[in-house]
Amino acid sequence: MSVQILSAGRSSLLEAREVSASYGHVQALKPTSLHIAEGELVTILGPNGAGKSTLLRALTRLTACRGRLFFRGTEISGLPTHQLARRGIVMVQEGRGLFAQMSVRENLMVGAFLHAAETDRQMAAVFELFPRLRERIDQTAGSLSGGEQQMLAIGRALMAKPQLLMLDEPSLGLAPRAASEILSTLGELNRRGLGILLVEQKAPLALKLAQRVYVLSLGKIVAELKPDEIESHHDLARYYLH
């Protein structure tokens, strides 16, 4: 079922070659290769337990993994997570990973850890994208609504000036309207040129944004295709679109 579609004409942003990860004796991610081009929005679909989160954790080195990673053609396989952020690879974790007892302002300031001199400018840009965060600036992150927390998680990641933003189920636990808002903001960020790798359960919404889709099953990529091609794969369409 594997359909090879290259993001022709665009230079590579991230390339993973034969990346695999295990938890103890359980191989959660079998050797997997994927790539994301500059300015591309790629979605990873797959059922629960397919290894989607493990894949993102492996790509950001939160989980030890085998295989090779390249960012803009340079090998980054041995770099720890914080060095990847320095290169511009930033992830919003599942569950948002906010610093719950710190205020919105402090969360954003920590987001700008690597770019402290640009904190004010970056914060203004984040508030332009998520005006509600400005209204909540002195509230603790833990006291925000689910949608606001996700805005803060994305805003905080943007403070780190990512070149590639990975998001693990950003719409999880959100009301449909909030989920739709979040995903449309991601679409806007992508239109501005930000590369995005999105793991998302709400497939119809995510597929509207994506330029390419990887389907993950039982720890390995079983398909790579364009969103509009999913209709022609009856099993995928039944699972993800209806």
């Binding site: 950001t60 939160l62 720890p80 997570t81 914080h82 952020a85 320095r86 930033v90 992830m91 974790q93 990973g97 906010l98 610093f99 719950a100 007892q101 710190m102 402090e106 300031m109 920590v110 987001g111 850890f113 690597l114 402290a116 905080r156 990641a157 403070m159 780190a160």
Partner: peptide, 22 residues
């Protein structure tokens, strides 16, 4: 900056790493 980063580490070390905090 360092103090806030230390507090961030105390609350969520993985998230802190993802933002470039060593």
């Amino acid at each position: 900056r360092t103090g806030r980063a230390l507090r961030a580490c105390s609350q969520n070390r993985e998230a802190a790493q993802l933002l470039g905090i060593p």
